[in-house]
């Protein structure tokens, strides 16, 4: 029997599920780096976080919404992985469970589920944990790829943490003076491949860039948000560095350290919480970059990516209201 349907009679093979699956694939390199450098602790955090997010989503959809389960669209898995990527490897499992609860139940489901949340769920979960448990959330293990079972974990400050606590007089002098704090800053190569302290997923710029290239190739995201976000941070810190020669403003370090890469590639590009039009995406990304630099350089916190993205998330409806393409045949004289 022939069927009748409305045009178009054909569709692209990309659907929500394949898009989300591609994001999960793009996240895998960073996960492998985390497990390699932080050992079993990282593996535990990732597994706990993903499992907890999927569980919360299933429970809410099944028992509160009374709808068919939505866990097979991979979005809870992404939230779980991103939440894990934003946590230190030594965090206890019950905290991860709470973080996942906040991320899925409060930040996502309370707004109505996939597509309706205002804020990035993983970031809300992370910020909640960060404010509630500041000690555990800033216990940064040093990477050690020989110590998979975490037999001997040493902790230290992150690169941005070191920069934050430099005072102006010492930082004005250059590295050659042998300042002890400055000596702790890893070199560019270590930061690039990720042999440095930090949250699970943010350490390796290389792995994140691989993920970015994969997502661009699969046309999951466009280049606008990562480019303008990272570009803004690089430009602003670069200008300040050139003006002051202060090592705290050194742009390449800012680019490779902290959560900037993770945020710009995976967090700020989240479909649901970023603007829809190209123009809006650029404004959003530049705003994120600006806020990141301000928080990193002038606030009490060493790192500002998650706050910057969350703040800009709040502006997305406003950006969407005023940024949209010009309609063909209108508005030009």
């Amino acid at each position: 029997m022939l069927k009748i349907s409305t045009a178009p009679h054909t569709g692209s093979s990309t659907d929500t599920q394949t898009l989300m699956r591609d994001v999960v694939i793009a996240l895998i390199p960073a996960a492998l780096v985390a497990i390699a450098f932080f050992g079993i602790g990282a593996l535990k955090v990732i597994i706990t976080s993903v499992a907890a997010c999927v569980m919360w989503e299933y429970l809410v959809v099944r028992y509160l919404f009374h709808k068919p389960s939505t866990i097979n669209n991979f979005s809870a898995i992404i939230t779980g992985m991103l939440l894990a990527f934003n946590l230190p490897p030594s965090i206890p499992a019950w905290m991860v469970l709470i973080g996942a609860f906040v991320a899925i139940v409060i930040a996502k489901m309370a707004f109505g589920g996939l597509g309706k949340n205002l804020f990035n769920p993983a970031l809300v979960g992370r910020v909640f944990l960060f404010i509630s448990f500041p000690v555990q959330m800033t216990l940064w293990a040093k990477p050690n790829w020989k110590d998979f079972l975490n037999a001997d974990v040493q902790t230290g400050a992150t690169t941005l943490g070191i920069l934050k606590h430099l005072d102006a007089s010492t930082s004005a002098t250059s590295l050659t003076h042998g300042n002890s704090a400055l000596a702790d800053i890893p070199d560019y190569w270590d930061m690039f491949i990720g042999y440095t302290g930090g949250s699970l997923g943010e350490i390796s710029a290389l792995a994140l860039l691989l993920g970015l290239i994969y997502m661009l190739w699969r046309k999951v995201i466009t280049w606008h948000i990562p480019f303008y976000y990272i570009g803004t941070v690089f430009l602003l810190t670069g200008v300040m560095w050139l003006a002051t020669k202060d090592v705290r403003y050194e742009p390449v370090t800012h680019l490779l350290s902290g959560g900037l890469m993770l945020g710009a590639v995976f967090m700020a590009t989240d479909y649901v919480t970023s603007p829809m039009s190209q123009k809006g995406k650029v404004i959003f990304a530049v705003g994120c970059g600006l806020l990141t630099v301000i928080i990193r350089l002038y606030s009490a916190y060493p790192e500002g990516v998650s706050f910057a993205i969350l703040i800009m998330n709040a502006f997305v409806p406003l950006i969407d209201k005023y940024c949209y393409p010009r309609v063909y045949g209108t508005g030009r004289k």
């Binding site: 029997m1 022939l2 069927k3 009748i4 349907s5 409305t6």
Partner: peptide
């Protein structure tokens, strides 16, 4: 006649 994925009367009226 079998409709496939049509959910609006006003459109269905136009095409069949």
């Amino acid at each position: 006649i079998h409709f496939d994925g049509i959910s609006i009367c006003r459109l269905a009226d136009k095409i069949s």
